[in-house]
Nucleic acid binder design. Structure first.
Length: 349
DNA sequence: GTAGACGATTATCTGACAAG
DNA sequence: CTTGTCAGATAATCGTCTAC
């Protein structure tokens, strides 16, 4: 019997035990549910495995608070213990931090759980996530910065990212804006976990040109949508492939993008034929404020000279917001994408 | 309107068991 | 020994209906 004073403990450390310990070391903490997803174990087995690791004092378990709004029972999260760390060291893993240094302040807990959730969803599609401390170290950013970490897309683009929970304080948003302006990194992703925080962020930042002109992309996503969208669509060619595949959108793509000596408009590079008309296609599914800014620069006079309207790809949920942001521009047509189609497309690949 | 009541749900633990 | 599944139990909590 594998018992020590009644409790089941680890007798022989398994490969998966080490992977779990490593995951806890690298990401500081993971919830029960996250461990279940990340290591692809059944619910029962996850509990069992974690209990055995805990009984062996390799990990410690704590109740989650502040993660889900209006709910008291939110499950548990797990951290690696000092014993767990020496165990990793014995396995030949280079570990520098002590268990004590991996503790997370209760106020940061919901942020870290949220970012780890994104990480677990996207890593299997070729994304990589770097912890906020590593990022701050690497780019020499100050310790108190809001930046949550860095995401590297499958194609190698590096995005610093931010997480916004259910409420967004104005002070905090201004602090973030200052970071976006000062950090000098070209690409950013902002995740918003509620509809309110999403629209607050978009509204506040879309008028802040001093921030936008410093960026190559500044994408703002509703959290859940982002976890689907980013699997594949950070690469815009895949968005185009999707639009082509669904004939109901009635698009035919011109073979090449606008190029050469002809005068170009920033951000308007892709010409399509839609309803018998040539238009500039802009994908705004990512609510990229840089794209929005570029569309605003395409003024009425230019449009009258050029003759091509802008065809804007949006969703039923974001259309109102996008229209409102561009209300002074009239030469825009909106193409609504059914998010169901989008999810179908992503899950059948 | 709200305090119970009551059943459903959630997160977890337990012990048993098959198979390797 | 392990992995992995499962029925069953639990305590806390959630949702909702009902009685006052």
């Amino acid at each position: 019997m594998s018992k020590t004073g009644n409790k089941q403990v680890v007798k022989v450390l398994q490969a998966r035990d080490i992977e779990i310990l490593l995951g806890l070391y690298e990401h500081r903490l993971l919830s029960t549910e996250q461990i279940m997803r990340r290591y692809e174990m059944s619910r029962w087995y996850t509990y069992k495995k974690l209990r055995i690791l805990r009984n062996s004092r390799l990990i410690s378990t704590h109740p989650i608070s502040g993660y889900l709004a209006n709910q008291n029972r939110q499950g548990s999260y797990h951290r690696i213990s000092e014993i767990g760390i020496s165990c990793l060291r014995e396995q030949g893993v280079t570990v520098e931090r002590r268990a004590d240094e991996l503790r997370v302040n209760i106020r940061r807990l919901p942020f870290l759980l949220s970012t780890n959730d994104v990480m677990i969803d996207l890593e299997r599609y070729g994304w990589e996530m770097k912890d906020s401390r590593d990022v701050k170290e690497k780019f020499e950013l100050n310790r108190g910065a809001n930046v949550q970490g860095m995401l590297t897309s499958p194609s190698g683009s590096e995005y610093l990212f931010y997480m916004f929970l259910h409420g967004v304080g104005m002070k905090n948003l201004m602090k973030t804006a200052k970071e976006l302006r000062d950090f000098g990194n070209p690409n950013y992703i902002l995740f918003a976990k509620s509809a309110t925080s999403y629209s607050t962020i978009v509204q506040q930042l879309s008028t802040n040109n001093s921030v936008i002109v410093k960026c190559q992309s500044l994408k703002i996503f509703p959290y859940t949508f982002a976890k689907y969208y980013l699997r594949l669509f950070e690469d815009e060619n895949n968005v185009m492939k999707f639009l082509e595949d669904y004939e109901i959108y009635d698009l035919s793509f011109k073979t090449s993008s606008v190029s050469g000596s002809k005068k170009q408009y920033d951000g308007l590079e892709r010409v399509v034929r839609h309803n018998g008309e040539e238009k500039y296609l802009v994908n705004l599914l990512d609510t990229d404020l840089v794209k929005l800014y570029n569309i605003k620069q395409y003024r009425k006079e230019m449009y009258e000279l050029d003759g091509r309207k802008v065809l804007l790809v949006t969703t039923p949920n974001t259309r109102d917001m996008h229209e409102q942001l561009l209300e002074e521009i009239h030469h825009i047509d909106y193409l609504e994408i059914d998010s169901g189609d989008l999810v179908d497309y992503l899950t059948t690949i």
